[in-house]
Design a protein around this nucleic acid. Structure first.
Lengths: 189, 189
DNA sequence: ATTATCTATAGATCTATAGATAATGC
DNA sequence: ATTATCTATAGATCTATAGATAATGC
């Protein structure tokens, strides 16, 4: 045959990449296995050989992009505040990934959604790590008398909220500039 | 028969209310007409007598709750900054509505989603009105040198972003308190 | 006559299972 | 023997249309 048989790991990676795209376009509930399969030149049943269920495929997508959103800049755990702005800048160049993330986050608040626990855990962790970073940078008090623990959910909220506004209307919202504005509010220079 | 025939307007209102609930639970794409119909004691085909298509029902839901999110507090156009905090407080008491809104916002960034234009327009309008409110309150410069136009998308982002964190983990996030913290950052008392 | 509702049903999908076929690795 | 894929198909759904039936309002 023309194409050599890809090793299983490569095939799985291809499928995860395709799933990421289809989820960006239609969300998880709207994404069909057939659409993902077609994108990698497989039948839907062929895809199910690599991932036994649709949910298993979603889990693989979530694991693959575990460093999403707030983690991309600085490696698994050691975030630094000055790496958040470059991360936002980077995200502004890959609307596809941001759209997948945002669509999944939106869906995840509905009942019994398979990504719900993932996001819940992730936000708990992100808030805790951000609080640590903010304390290291600003000490125990930020402008307005906020503690780092009070500011951390706001940083996360701004990151996510700006993504929605930007995805809906990229020309109307300069996501990195807006985020820099927020950092100035926090007192960073 | 037992129940008197409801006037059409009442029936439609019942259906819209049921649709709101089902969308909160499953999102728009995941919400079936049959599930909505069942909730008001109709068959799926009976429901389609009142709304000719599923999309028409969504439009009715969006129109009914046009004052969603940022509008509830102060009447159609005249927002005031000091009514935002009570609005967040009010939202914290109705997770259902917030969940419907958040699920729809998340879905709306996917391709060809029927609510996309609604949200795009809405955010454009919300940012403009918030900028006006911020200018009236703070003048041309806010902390960090932000202009009202730079701060407006941040206010919106914080409102939306906090909702997701709160829906995912209500015990971990005190939404009104977090929002008050953000207002203190902006320099309001 | 119009309005509200129902039954019947067409026509698409969708996920997942069963089982065949062919290539690869011992 | 195992791995990758395919064909066939079961069993659920889902939206929407067609057409019947019964009640309401002139």
């Amino acid at each position: 045959m023309a194409a050599a048989r890809a090793r299983s790991g490569e095939r799985r990676a291809e499928i995860v990449r395709a799933a990421l795209e289809v989820i960006a376009e239609r969300g998880y509930r709207g994404a069909s296995l057939a659409a993902v399969a077609e994108r990698v030149g497989l039948t839907q049943q062929g895809l199910l050989h690599h991932f036994p269920t649709k949910e298993a495929l979603l889990v693989a997508v979530l694991e693959e992009h575990d460093q999403w959103d707030t983690g991309g800049g600085g490696g698994r755990d050691g975030w630094r505040l000055d790496l958040l702005e470059p991360l936002v800048e980077y995200n502004a160049m890959r609307p596809g990934i941001v759209q997948t993330f945002s669509a999944l986050l939106g869906e995840s608040v509905t009942e019994g959604h398979p990504a719900r626990e993932f996001f819940t855990r992730r936000y708990t962790q992100v808030r805790a790590e951000l609080a640590g970073v903010l304390r290291a940078e600003f000490g125990d008090r930020l402008p307005g008398g906020l503690t780092p623990e009070e500011a951390a959910p706001l940083v996360t909220a701004v990151l996510d909220g700006l993504q929605y506004q930007w995805l809906l209307d990229p020309d109307a919202v300069d996501m990195p500039a807006a985020f820099r504005g927020f950092l100035r509010l926090l007192g960073a220079r």
